[in-house]
Design a protein around this nucleic acid. Structure first.
Lengths: 90, 90
DNA sequence: CATGACCCGTATATTAATACCGGTATAAGA
DNA sequence: TCTTATACCGGTATTAATATACGGGTCATG
């Protein structure tokens, strides 16, 4: 076995994660946030839409910094499918 | 251009990051921490030795949880080459 | 000597990050 | 109304890199 494909659960976690980032982005545009984080807009879009379910740590860290959210809060929020309704909304 | 190879700076950042994790591991063995985080020992070793300079966010999150360190502290520590001497040593 | 812990090299399938092209929808302007 | 611009989404393509596994090597400790 060499790197088992991602499980549906992991993909769902990626979708939750992307939804969190998109919510944290608020009114700002993708290109604005992506530029602030130093990543391409395509990458941000992929992560937000869940098409990149397991993004790089430093990419996420840069995005979190640009969005002003905590990495620990992000990890905790997408680890718990329930109770993340108002998470990171501030 | 399709995914520029990692710059030497990014690789150095990976080495700093790995050193931080190794310091946070303390006396515990690699297999112990890797099992607790749900990743393979090879993966943990690669990250610690800097041979995996840009690990996945969720892999790092699982390791940080197993080590009891903060993701924000990790990101901040490896982003600043100076002043991380006693970081995460507690 | 044996065991445990770590390291290194190699191998492999899957994925990340980037880019380009086109499509859709909405809003502003002539 | 027609056009333009902005913003997002989808597919495809390409290289680099992850995550995993195996075999062997080293070094200390028992």
């Amino acid at each position: 076995m060499v790197r088992t494909p991602l499980s549906p659960e992991e993909r769902r976690r990626g979708e939750r994660f992307g939804a969190l980032l998109r919510r944290a982005r608020g009114e700002r545009s993708m290109v604005e946030v992506a530029a602030a984080a130093g990543v391409s807009a395509e990458t941000l879009r992929k992560i937000e839409t869940g098409r990149a379910p397991t993004p790089s740590f430093f990419t996420v860290a840069a995005l979190a910094a640009a969005l002003g959210v905590s990495l620990d809060a992000l990890a905790a929020a997408c680890a718990e499918p329930e109770g993340d309704d108002q998470a990171l909304s501030a």
